[in-house]
Design a protein around this nucleic acid. Structure first.
Length: 420
RNA sequence: GUGGGCGUAGCUCAGCUGGUAGAGCACUCGGUUGUGGUCCGAGAUGUCGCGGGUUCGAGCCCCGUCGCUCACCCCA
C-alpha cells in the first residue's frame, strides 16, 4: 500500500543541514550582545491563554484579530500559539514577581512564534525570533542600550546594508491630542471602504500604506512628532543623543507605525535593503501601560524582537556567511576493525580537548573515505591503519594543499593547533 | 483574505505543431595494491504535484484541486 507523502505544514520555516548551521550561528550572534550586557534567559511556553494576547497586544491589531492560531484544549480552555514574545515575558515577570527585585528586569528569549498569514518571502506561519526586554525603569539610557544591543548583533554578524529608523510615539496626552487632528484630517480624504475601516480601527496604520495614491494623500497628514509633550520631546532627545554618543546612525521616521498596540515613547525598526517586501529584520520600542494592563504594577519597559529567519536571509544576500565556518578540524579514516576501535577513542580524546573531529564510518575504500573528508570541509585528515597503530605515528594531511607531516598519534592535538 | 507567476530525477532546468522522458550538477562504484579536489568510464534515481476530461494516444490541450512563489495586506 502506498502512503501519501507527508509535508511540513504550509508556510513554516525549517532548517536542515547544511543551512541549519548558519541559522544557529545567526541566532547565537543575535543573543550574544544581550548576554554580554547581563540579560538572562526566559524560556517560556509557546502557547498561552488567549486572553494574554487579546489584552496585551490589542484587539484592534491584525495580529490578534485575524492571525492567531487559537484552539480549545481538552479542558475547554482557549489557547493561542504565541504570535509575539513581549506579552508572555510580561506575564511571567508578573507571575514570578520578578519586578519585586532589582529593576530593571533584564531578560532575553529565543524561539518559535506563530502567525496565520499568507506565506511570502521572509514571512512564515512559524518563524523564529530573538527578543530582549528591559522592564521597570524609564531611563532614556536604557532605550539606547536596547537599540545598541540589536545594532551590535547586526554588526557582529557582518551586516552592512541595514538601517535603523526611530521615532517617538510620545505619552498618552501626546497621542490623544494628535489623534483628534489626524481623524479630522482622514475624514477629509476620499478613501476606499477597506482603507476607511482600517483608519477607524487605528488611524495611525494609514501612515505605512504602500500604495502610491494613499501615500500621496497622507503626505499632508499631521505627524505625531509635532504633538509630543515637552516631557516626551525631552526624553526622545535624550535617547537620540545617547545613540549619537554610541556612534549609532539612525534616521528619524515620524511616519513609522508598529503593528502592536502597546508601544509608547521610543519606537524603532531595523530595515534591510536586500530583502524584498518583508524588509523589517527587527523592531521594538517602549511600552508604558502593558504591564498594568496585564494585571501587574504600573511599570514601563522597552524591548525588541529580531526576525532570525529574515536576518539569515539578509546575511545570505550580503554573502557574509563563510563557507567553511562550521567545518571540522580533523577527519579520521580508520582501516580495519582494530583501527576503528582506536579511532573512536582517539576522536573522543581530541573532542575533549575542544577539537571538532569526525570519523569515516562504513568500510568504504580509502579513496571514497578521502573524498568524504574533502567534502566535509575538514581542515585535516589522517589515515589510521596497521602501520600507524604499530609505529605510533601518523601522517597528518592538511587538506587545503595536501601537505603531509608526520606526527605522533599521542601528539595529534598539539599538531592540530600548531598547523592550523 | 485579494491578485500575478510557477509546479518534469536530490538540485537547476530542457522537452519541437500532443506519439507514454532527457541534460548538467550532486550521488555510488571503477580507472590494480593505503590518501581528496582535475580527467575518463560505468551505475542508480522520476506514479512528469494530484484528480478528472478531450483524444487511438497527453509532460505537453481543457476543468478542478493541492502546493510553491512574488506582491497587496500585515509584520519579525
Amino acid at each position: 500500500m502506498k502512503r501519501e507523502q507527508l509535508h511540513a505544514p504550509k508556510g513554516v520555516s525549517e532548517y536542515v543541514p547544511p543551512r541549519s548551521a548558519s541559522f544557529e550561528w545567526i541566532r547565537d550572534h543575535l543573543i550574544a550582545p544581550a548576554k554580554a550586557a547581563g540579560y538572562q534567559l526566559m524560556e517560556l511556553p509557546v502557547f498561552e491563554d488567549t486572553n494574554l494576547f487579546s489584552r496585551g497586544v490589542g484587539e484592534s491589531t491584525d495580529v490578534v484579530s485575524k492571525e492567531m492560531y487559537t484552539f480549545e484544549d481538552r479542558g475547554g480552555r482557549s489557547i493561542t500559539l504565541r504570535p509575539e514574545g513581549t506579552a508572555g515575558v510580561m506575564r511571567a515577570v508578573i507571575e514570578h514577581s520578578l519586578d519585586r527585585g532589582q529593576l530593571p528586569v533584564k531578560v532575553f528569549y529565543s524561539g518559535a512564534f506563530f502567525r496565520a498569514e499568507r506565506p511570502q518571502a521572509g514571512r512564515y506561519r512559524q518563524f523564529y525570533q530573538v527578543g530582549v526586554e528591559s522592564i521597570g525603569l524609564d531611563d532614556p539610557a536604557i532605550d539606547a542600550e536596547i537599540i545598541a544591543l540589536a545594532d551590535t548583533a547586526f554588526k557582529n554578524i557582518g551586516l552592512k546594508k541595514y538601517r535603523l529608523e526611530i521615532t517617538s510615539l510620545g505619552d498618552a496626552q501626546s497621542r490623544a491630542a494628535h489623534k483628534v487632528d489626524l481623524v479630522k484630517f482622514l475624514k477629509s480624504l476620499d478613501l476606499d471602504e477597506a482603507t476607511q475601516s482600517r483608519a477607524e480601527i487605528n488611524p495611525l496604520r494609514l501612515f505605512d500604506d504602500k500604495r502610491e495614491e494613499v501615500r500621496s494623500k497622507m503626505a499632508a497628514a499631521p505627524l505625531l512628532m509635532d504633538y509630543l509633550s515637552a516631557a516626551s520631546r525631552e526624553n526622545f532627545a535624550q535617547v537620540c543623543s545617547y545613540l549619537d554618543a554610541l556612534g549609532i546612525t539612525y534616521t528619524l521616521n515620524p511616519r513609522m507605525v508598529r503593528g502592536l498596540d502597546y508601544y509608547t515613547g521610543t519606537t524603532f525598526e531595523f530595515i534591510h535593503d536586500d530583502l524584498g517586501a518583508q524588509s523589517g529584520i527587527g523592531g521594538g520600542g517602549r511600552y508604558d501601560g502593558l504591564m498594568e494592563t496585564l494585571g501587574g504594577a504600573d511599570l514601563s519597559g522597552i524591548g525588541f524582537g529580531l526576525g532570525v529567519d529574515r536576518i539569515l536571509l539578509a546575511a545570505e544576500a550580503e554573502g557574509v556567511l563563510l563557507e567553511n565556518q562550521f567545518a571540522s578540524d580533523l577527519f579520521i579514516i580508520p582501516l580495519g576493525q582494530i583501527a576503528k576501535e582506536r579511532a573512536l577513542s582517539l576522536a573522543q580524546d581530541l573532542r575533549q580537548d575542544g577539537f571538532k573531529v569526525e570519523i569515516a564510518f562504513g568500510d568504504r575504500a580509502l579513496k571514497g573515505a578521502m573524498k568524504a573528508a574533502d567534502k566535509s570541509g575538514s581542515a585535516f585528515a589522517v589515515v589510521l591503519g596497521e602501520t600507524e597503530l604499530s609505529s605510533g605515528s601518523i601522517e597528518l594531511k592538511r587538506m587545503k594543499d595536501g601537505e603531509l607531516s608526520s606526527v605522533k598519534i599521542s601528539e595529534l592535538g598539539k599538531a592540530l593547533s600548531a598547523h592550523a
